[in-house]
Design a protein around this nucleic acid. Structure first.
Length: 873
RNA sequence: GCCCGGAUGGUGAAAUAGGUAGACACAAGAGACUUAAAAUCUCUCGGCCGUAAGGCUGUACCGGUUCGAUUCCGGUUCCGGGCACCA
């Protein structure tokens, strides 16, 4: 055995061994329980970032651990290869997106292998390849025929200078990120997937997901947002509007209807358009509302503004005339594009009414008859449920009663009815971009939208294009869009929009089961690997809503298309681990026009005060100060990523894996710092040295029974307690930092062992064999090497995980803590078999207890078996 | 703004079911070994008082429940994630 721990050498050797033996190959085998361990596949952005290393190390630890428990493990990997960054890189570096993407995949695959992940590369897929996306196009045409995909207008960010649609991320303070032009909202035709048709099931099935964090289920539930409310119709006031009609709104608070004092409509609403014809100021205001992006966060935080239209509608219950306002916070795409406003009982309406001097009418009190408790002077809206007051015949009714009676009255007048509504909206999947999956539709002047027939699939995306950033490249390629109608044969035009990349990532995990099938989207192998759901899914918490919801949706779509045959799959992911973000500080300088130029932390010199808090920061290259931004998710846009490659080059893959698993539990965010990496390396060197010293004394058989001294007996108890704890940490708790700490603790105890008998050597052998296997899932390379030294000819990865020896855990005496009035005052040794009465007696007889009692009789005695005694004086 | 999280020593964190707060590490300081350095080993390490024994105090802030609260409940502050075209 070599005396020195040389990671580069042993890691390459271990990887060569795994490759030779096909250790990571996953083959269907019905004689073993299966374990499908899935990590969210990476976007091939160039090189791995710390988030990837963290994600895939967690996946690899769980994969290797379960393999040692006897499962048939599959750990696949692929590439979420379509997306905007490839187009941006193309514009910047004049490289075709495909070429850029494939070379990134090559490099990153090399990095994954260098980290020693047990990935079955035979199942690798890339979403930008026709043999993958053709099935997505195929299902698209089926869904289109079923009416689950349909076309309508949708609102996008329009950059008038570049003549192009921008993503929300590309709109900064209402301006295009490249052109700096003011962005406008624009309505264009888009394809939508009818996810709302599955809203009820997506909500109800959350209850099946026992292996999901509550947090994520709550977020999805709120996102779907099932609400019970009422449609309310406000008849037009004919004198002002000039025609008959009814303005429809939806509310979850019909009990407050008597307090409605105005209605607000979106800038694009028909009533707004009508009023603007004769009102130049209103016309100008509506134009202004159309400026800016479409992101909801911006809508919700912008200043609420409005303007009266001069039009009126009639209150359906009390017949009063209510003014119609145009408000910038009402959106045409959501619901009816109009809302009723009850300023007294809604915070947003309250703020708006206060600003524009609109009437505030209080109609809900916290108890019947008494509404002075929430009455003037008005400081804020009373949005809680209560009792109707100041509401005529409805006075005294509580929320539900008022809801029912008012809904009934509206229905009787034909001006409303109860309605269940969802916040969830249909999923717009059209993108006016090049680097994505082409939408398989042909537009025919006589036949309309015709789905591409199966035999013409896939619609292949041309790979040699030039991307300029202005307009859609496909729309400039006649050789792509010129075609003939599949129905009538006349000249037609192919759709040039591509699909949202979330579509590709909504089913890749099913395709891993059968990536080689060129006859079908999926086959019966899905039923083997996904039975009962994918056993473990691991990925960032930032995907808690969109990606996970879309994937659940697509699984249900594929199920209902009959793609799982006799198999049943309602939910794709049985267990979900949402890893915390890897975050790092951000630094920037403001350039011309206030544009932020982000600087990588590696190029920044931090100056800290004596308490270790950063005071100022300077750029290394010029020594000039930079602005310290917040600590945020490592990302390209903030340029705060830390390259893991340097870490691997210097210390090896095992140190990188160990450090990142030890630094914090997987579901917490991890703030990157270089400190601590050395510590992880030092620990591995220490393990190596300990094994080296033991092996140098000659090999012995592991302890298998027989008398032990008290010292060895105590130590063996620690060993087997640690095995139990670590098994629980890996398996149930998925908390790897404490598993590592338990091994460290065990080795600290090991180093303190003094005995040097044959029995002691046997216990040492037992311990080190166990340690090599206990650490194997986290640092497999070094453990493979150490285990081969301890048990020549044997591979650690082929062993079963250590089991606790119950007989080693037996204790004669245990220690209880002694509390007086809930404060720790001492401890107590009692026989392990002592009953409650014996423990009480021992506690009262204790010197410390006597001292604090000072002759008084205790008021109460609390005994928690195995833990403590609390004496209340 | 809305939804979901988080906050514990100089730092990362632990405390698994309401029961010893700070395990295990990092950094720092002191010492041993060494011609020296590196490596390694030993010790100290929340704050205040005390030579010590020990005492008081302490888990973002304010309040509550409990024999006992980092943990449960109500409120507040700050930080992070998501908000439908970043992935």
């Amino acid at each position: 055995m070599q005396e020195k721990y040389q990671p580069q050498e042993i890691e390459l050797a271990a990887q060569a061994h795994w490759n030779k033996t096909g250790a990571a190959r996953a083959v269907e085998d019905t004689t073993k329980p299966k374990y499908y361990c899935l990590s969210m596949f990476p976007y091939p952005s160039g090189k791995l970032h710390m988030g990837h290393v963290r994600n895939y190390t967690i996946g690899d630890v769980l994969s290797r651990f379960h393999k040692m428990l006897g499962f048939n493990v599959m750990q696949p990997m692929g590439w979420d290869a379509f997306g905007m960054p490839a187009e941006n890189a193309a514009i910047q570096n004049n490289v075709p997106p495909a070429q850029w993407t494939y070379s990134n995949i090559d490099y990153m695959k090399g990095q994954l292998n260098r980290l020693g992940f047990a990935i079955d590369w035979d199942r690798e897929l890339a979403t930008c390849k026709p043999d993958y996306y053709r099935w997505e196009q195929w299902l698209f045409t089926r869904l289109y025929e079923k009416g689950l995909i349909y076309k309508r207008l949708g609102t996008v960010n329009w950059d008038p200078e570049d003549q192009t649609v921008l993503a929300n991320e590309q709109v900064i303070d209402g301006r295009g990120w490249r052109s700096d032009a003011l962005i406008e909202k624009r309505e264009i035709p888009m394809y939508y997937m009818k996810i709302t048709a599955y809203a009820d099931e997506l909500l109800a099935d959350l209850d099946q997901l026992g292996g999901w964090p509550e947090q994520v289920k709550t977020m999805q539930k709120n996102w779907i947002g099932k609400s019970f409310g009422c449609d309310v119709g406000f008849p037009y006031d004919k004198a002002s509007i000039g025609t008959d009609g009814v303005l429809k709104v939806y509310t979850t608070r019909p009990d407050t209807l008597m307090g409605a004092t105005y209605v607000a409509v979106a800038a694009e609403h028909a009533l707004a358009t009508q009023a603007a014809k004769t009102n130049p100021a209103l016309h100008e205001f509506i134009e202004e509302c159309k400026r800016g992006g479409v992101a909801e966060a911006d809508m919700a935080t912008m200043e609420k503004r409005g303007m009266p239209t001069g039009l009126f509608v009639v209150h359906p219950l009390n017949g009063e005339q209510l003014p119609v306002w145009v408000a910038n916070y009402v959106l045409m795409g959501y619901g009816e594009g109009a809302v009723m406003a009850v300023p007294a009982h809604d915070e947003r309406d309250y703020a708006f009414a206060t600003k524009y001097g609109l009437e505030i009418r209080m109609v809900i009190g916290s108890q019947a008859g008494a509404y002075s408790d929430v009455a003037a002077p008005w400081q804020e809206a009373y949005a809680d449920y209560g009792v109707c007051v100041n509401s005529g015949k409805y006075d005294g009714l509580k929320f539900q009663a008022a809801f029912d009676v008012i809904a009934g009255d509206l229905a009787a007048k034909g001006l409303g009815e109860k309605k269940t509504q969802f916040r969830l909206r249909d999923w717009g999947i059209s993108r006016q971009r090049y680097w994505g999956c082409p939408i398989p539709i042909i537009h025919c002047p006589s036949c309309g939208d015709v789905p591409v027939p199966d035999e013409q699939l896939p619609v292949v995306l041309p790979e040699n294009v030039t991307v300029t950033g202005a307009g859609s490249p496909l729309a400039k390629m006649p050789e792509f869009y010129e075609c003939s109608c599949p129905k009538c044969g006349k000249p037609a035009r192919r759709e040039t929009d591509t699909m949202d990349t979330f579509v590709e990532s909504s089913w890749y995990f099913l395709r891993y089961c059968c990536p080689d099938n060129d006859k079908a989207m999926v086959d019966e192998r899905v039923n083997y690997w996904c039975k009962g759901g994918i056993d473990q899914y691991i990925g960032g918490i930032e995907h808690a809503i969109l990606h996970l919801l879309y994937s659940r949706f697509w699984t249900k779509l594929m199920r209902d298309a009959g793609l799982f045959g006799a198999g049943k799959l309602d939910e794709p992911f049985a267990h979900l681990l949402t890893q915390g973000m890897v975050v790092a500080p951000t630094f920037y300088r403001e350039g011309e026009g206030g544009k932020k130029e982000w600087i990588n932390p590696a190029d920044v010199e931090l100056i800290c005060d004596e308490r270790g808090r950063p005071v100022t920061a300077t750029l290394r290259t010029d020594g000039q100060p930079v602005v310290i931004g917040g600590t945020e998710k490592m990302s390209k846009s903030k340029n705060n990523g830390v390259d893991p490659q340097a870490l691997i080059d210097q210390f090896g893959a095992d140190t990188a894996r160990l450090f990142i698993m030890f630094a914090s539990p997987p579901d917490q965010s991890l703030e990157w710092s270089d400190a601590g990496v050395e510590g992880a390396f030092r620990f591995l060197k220490r393990v190596w040295r300990i094994v080296f010293e033991h092996v140098s004394g000659g090999l012995v058989a592991a302890y298998a029974g027989g008398e032990l001294s008290a010292e060895l007996k105590t130590f063996r108890r620690q060993l087997h307690q640690a095995i139990g704890k670590i098994t629980d940490d890996y398996g149930r708790r998925k908390q790897f930092n404490t598993a590592i700490a338990a091994v460290m603790e065990l080795l600290n105890a090991y180093a303190k062992l003094t005995e040097d008998s044959p029995a002691a050597r046997a216990v040492r052998q037992e311990t080190l064999e166990a340690v090599a296997l206990l650490l194997y899932p986290i640092v497999p390379h070094v453990c493979e090497a150490l285990y081969a030294e301890l048990k020549p000819g044997q591979a650690a990865g082929a062993q079963l995980f250590p089991k606790t020896d119950q007989t080693a855990l037996v204790q004669d005496e245990i220690e209880l803590m002694l509390q007086i009035n809930g404060k720790l005052r001492g401890s107590l040794r009692v026989p392990a078999t002592a009953d409650k009465a014996a423990i009480e007696a021992a506690a009262l007889a204790n010197d410390v207890a006597q001292k604090h009692l000072e002759g008084q009789t205790p008021k109460k005695l609390i005994v928690v078996p195995g833990r403590l005694v609390n004496i209340v004086v």
